[in-house]
């Protein structure tokens, strides 16, 4: 009995030692995996969700964050929110962040309203101006944020190889949106005794737990949609999906063509294999 207990303790220590080494190197935050319409092999974006997500972006995020790698015309093209062209043209014409154009005949640069072909700019001309207006913090461009963020596994090291194989087998590429959703819903009260620096906000899902961005969405401050629905969680979900599309607009075509290619390859490999056996049947073995 005593040996079994000792053995169990040793086993536990062996398990925890590498995990402890991991923790010593930096805490890994756990992020819940969400259900996304565009996840997995047959995933596709939900047009309505992308439209709601754009609404959240426009009314909340666009006050500080630009999306300069997106053009207004992207909001019209298939595979995305697919807004009507006239609506987007009007939206662009009324967009408060103007395009710098010129020089005109007088030799001066001037500002003009964006066209469909122009990028969706944020309120700051460059990173320096953005930092200056935000106490040194940089409201980054959101075009690629859903691909520029990932999640580290929190499970013990010896499970990692199985987690990797699981992710490859299921086609998991939604770590970015999972992170964003966790972040946007992670503005909670700090635990007792947590030292929050001046001007920072506590976020359970931000590495280091202190983030300069004030909560963009809150339980009592969120976007209500046209049909009356809306909540913090729904806003967070929809805008994360919209940002996922912004970073990867070709997903719909990619996964659709992917199915066709995989089917073709599997059939052809099988045919080639049978043909190979047919040919090799001539050779004794």
């Amino acid at each position: 009995m005593r040996n079994t207990v000792r053995g169990a303790l040793v086993a536990v220590a062996l398990v925890l030692a590498p995990a402890a080494a991991l923790a010593a190197g930096g805490e890994h935050i756990h992020y819940d995996r969400q259900q996304w319409s565009f996840g997995g092999f047959s995933g596709q974006y939900d047009k309505a969700q992308l439209q709601r997500g754009f609404q959240v972006y426009k009314e909340v995020c666009a006050n500080c964050h630009g999306m300069k790698r997106l053009s207004f015309r992207n909001l019209v093209q298939p595979g995305g929110p697919e807004f009507p062209a006239e609506a987007v043209k009007a939206l662009a014409a009324g967009w408060s962040n103007k395009i710098v154009d010129g020089p005109n005949d007088e030799g001066k640069m001037f500002e003009r309203a964006p066209l469909l072909s122009d990028p969706i700019l944020g309120p700051f001309k460059n990173e320096n101006e953005a930092r200056y207006a935000n106490n040194g913090a940089y409201p980054l461009d959101l075009s690629l944020v859903a691909k520029a963020r990932t999640i580290e596994p929190t499970a013990p090291w010896y499970t990692h190889i199985f987690l990797m194989l699981r992710d490859i087998a299921t086609g998991y590429q939604e770590a970015g949106p999972d992170y964003l959703y966790g972040l946007l819903t992670g503005y909670v009260d700090p635990p007792k005794g947590f030292q929050l620096a001046d001007g920072m906000n506590y976020n359970s899902h931000f590495p280091g737990h202190q983030i300069a961005m004030a909560p963009p969405l809150a339980k009592d401050n969120f976007i209500k949609y046209q049909d009356g629905t809306g909540s913090l969680e729904q806003n967070a979900k929809d805008v994360s999906a919209f940002l996922a599309w912004a970073a990867d607009p070709s997903l719909n075509a990619r996964k659709r063509i992917g199915w066709q290619v995989m089917l073709y390859l599997i059939v052809t490999t099988l045919l080639l294999y049978l043909a190979k056996r047919r040919i090799w049947a001539r050779v004794a073995h």
């Binding site: 073709y264 390859l265 059939v267 052809t268 045919l271 080639l272 049978l274 043909a275 047919r278 040919i279 049947a281």
Partner: peptide
């Protein structure tokens, strides 16, 4: 004949993909 048909089909599939 059968071997050739199978081989032919397999090669045709490969060629179409290419």
């Amino acid at each position: 004949n059968r071997r050739d048909f199978l081989v032919l089909t397999a090669n045709a599939f490969a060629a179409v993909g290419a």
